[in-house]
Amino acid sequence: MTRSDTNVTMLAEQIKDGARLALPSENSGVPVAVVRALIARGARDLRLVGGPTGGFAIDLLVGAGCVASVEAAGVSLGPRGLAPRFCAAVEAGEIEMIDSTCPATHAGFIAGEKRLPFMAVRGVFGSDMLKNRSDWFVIDNPFPPHDPVVVVPAILPDVTALHAPMADEAGNVWVGNRRELKTMARAAKQVLVTVEKIHPGNLVKDSAMAPGLLTAPYIDLIALAPRGAAPTALPPDYGPDDAMLDSYASAAKTREGFDGWLADFLGPDGAA
């Protein structure tokens, strides 16, 4: 049952070491407060899935040693360039990188939402993702014109974790126009959500808000976490914390710089 009296640490405890964890793309509801709690706990061997890409949070988890593998169509710090700890970990062979492409990851989540075994995706032919991934296939379309089609398996995360502008008192979460967050949540076995605030009443009755809801039956736990996506942006509530992201991009270029930045980020009570 949904509980809104949970705190972020309790919520993060639901994500077990080794879990396959789906995270939203940058500035789409990245649950940074949960990521911080995972690092503080010393989580290990997480198998991350970007929805379909990743940024600050994935780089942070990789740098903190919490990650066994990353499946994503791309990992970067957006306007700040490459994700330094992610790139270093791939170059050193410390994590497994499972390269995807955006429409294929979306298709995998859509198959997962429908509990279908696979979904077809246009194009992708000739790419090294198709060559390297043992779980992607080319099949013959059984219908005319019987053309070759790439199929990818359903993505069924153990957990999808996201941060949203609000939940209501009935436990519905408003994710706005980020429809892929609903798909990623519905594909997952467990759904953990942090929110900026609790809205009084029930948003299902509000026809302007209802299309942007991930409703209560999909959600396992909700915790309040003001500015829980910062320093990434949470439209429409807040933009990116440019100063903090600049300092991260600069510090994380070296191992030592990253370690110092992370220690500040975790604070005195957050020793991993």
Binding site: L82, E91, C102, P103, R122, G123, S127
Partner: peptide
């Protein structure tokens, strides 16, 4: 040297 990743290119190319 690792870079970002392929993003949507593999699909959009068709």
């Amino acid at each position: 040297k690792r870079f970002t990743g392929s993003f949507g290119a593999a699909g959009l190319y068709y």
